[in-house]
Write a protein that binds this DNA or RNA. Structure first.
Length: 104
DNA sequence: CGAGTGACCGCAA
DNA sequence: ATTGCGGCCACTC
């Protein structure tokens, strides 16, 4: 269910992220209309939804976020299962190349 | 109803 | 180059 347009955008973009790619909070927030609302994206991810592929969400450095269900290790495994290589430090390898952009 | 927190990012000094 | 601060939205107590 979608109420706020901001959340709607996040849902749409998040659901549109193809497996094997990752996106960042800043990009989602920017495409949602608020480049400085990256924080809100994280909140929506944690409290707003639970059935979306949030494991494809990474921070600006390409590192897995914290507070994820189960822990970063689970998220890392999930990403690897989709074809994304994760470094031992929980950082997406070639993140710059794997960084998926909503539309651009 | 009001206030605070929270999975972040960008800029300024 | 590094450190510190501000700002957005949503959800909870």
């Amino acid at each position: 269910m979608i109420d706020s347009e901001f959340r709607n955008k996040i849902h749409q973009l998040m659901a549109g992220v193809p497996a094997g790619n990752v996106t960042t909070y800043g990009d989602l927030a920017a495409f949602a209309g608020h480049a400085y609302a990256a924080r809100a994206v994280g909140m929506i991810a944690h409290y707003g939804d639970e059935s979306l592929p949030w494991h494809r969400l990474v921070n600006r450095f390409g590192g897995l976020a914290s507070g994820y269900y189960g822990g970063r290790e689970v998220q890392a495994v999930m990403l690897e299962a989709e074809g994304v290589k994760i470094s031992p430090e929980f950082v997406v390898e070639k993140f710059k190349d794997r960084r998926w952009q909503p539309k651009l």
